[in-house]
């Protein structure tokens, strides 16, 4: 009986892991398959779909997405850092209520936020704002609560005695922030910024309302195309953009992100 349970457990674990990886494998396979129909027929490898990516059809939205995600990561990084600093480190009056305000967008579905923003812009006559500026604003609203929360968590985990130790050693407030607080929460801030970049880069539910013809992001371009065909070039786009995301994570990690968190901290 125990043996049966054991077998069932390992089998279900394996099956779930297959379920998780299957679509990824299929997409990678499709991106390398020479026929445009994705079938089980034996195939030969080809890189021609990747070569096709080097055209303005895919490069333009890619660059637009990178540009938007970079600006969003920068803005929400700075704003989130400042907000978390004020609420958690300075404990300004009403900090709990302010924190819930800052995090309140998290409880509204993205699609609803998207509708609200597009209606808002249209009603006040700022349709011209659609495209990159509106995308940036909406993505900041989306990313900011996440960044604030991540920075707030690392500030809350920050050992207040380090701050006090610096203070009795004669460090002024600005010196303490620069020399002790910021270095200690750097991993939290960098993870927040990376996360902001990724959710902006991959975003669909907000972007779908706010793009304009000729001013669209990569995921929106891809899904618009997907509704008509399963062209393997789309597989190549997807694989390439995942590779790009991994590269971004790797880059931030190198600058001193997540794994530094494991070694940092005085505990």
């Amino acid at each position: 009986m125990n043996r049966l349970i054991s077998i069932f457990y390992w089998f279900s674990l394996g099956a779930v892991l297959c379920f998780i990886t299957l679509p990824l494998i299929v997409v990678v396979a499709a991106s390398l398959s020479p026929t445009s129909a994705v079938t089980l027929q034996p195939w030969e490898w080809t890189g021609r779909w990747y070569a096709d990516l080097w055209s303005s059809r895919w490069l333009d939205p890619f660059l637009a997405s990178v540009k938007i995600a970079t600006v969003v990561a920068a803005i929400s990084g700075v704003l989130g850092l400042f907000a978390a600093y004020a609420v958690v480190y300075e404990r300004i009056p009403g900090s709990d209520a302010l924190m819930s305000c800052l995090l309140s967008p998290l409880s509204v579905p993205q699609i609803v936020k998207g509708v609200a923003v597009v209606l808002f812009l249209s009603m006040i006559g700022l349709q011209g704002f659609l495209g990159t500026p509106a995308l940036i604003a909406a993505h900041v609203v989306l990313a900011l609560p996440f960044v604030t929360r991540m920075v707030a968590t690392s500030l809350a985990n920050f050992d207040a005695n380090l701050d006090r130790a610096a203070q009795v050693l004669g460090a002024s407030k600005l010196q303490r922030i620069r020399l002790v607080v910021l270095p200690m929460i750097k991993p939290g801030v960098l993870s927040g910024v990376t996360f902001a970049f990724i959710i902006s880069f991959n975003n669909i539910p907000l972007s779908v309302f706010l793009v304009r013809p000729g001013d669209s992001t990569l995921p929106i371009t891809v899904i618009n195309y997907l509704e008509y065909s399963l062209d393997p070039v789309l597989a190549a786009v997807n694989v390439a953009s995942m590779a790009f995301i991994l590269a971004v994570i790797f880059l931030f990690e190198k600058i001193g992100g997540f794994s530094a968190q494991l070694h940092g901290g005085s505990k």
Partner: peptide, 22 residues
């Protein structure tokens, strides 16, 4: 998979589940 974004995974399922799919 979380890093891959929704589109890639959905695309994968389209390939798998389509009428002429996997």
């Amino acid at each position: 998979p979380e890093l891959a974004g929704v589109v890639l995974r959905t695309y994968g399922w389209l390939i798998i589940l389509e009428d002429r799919g996997f």
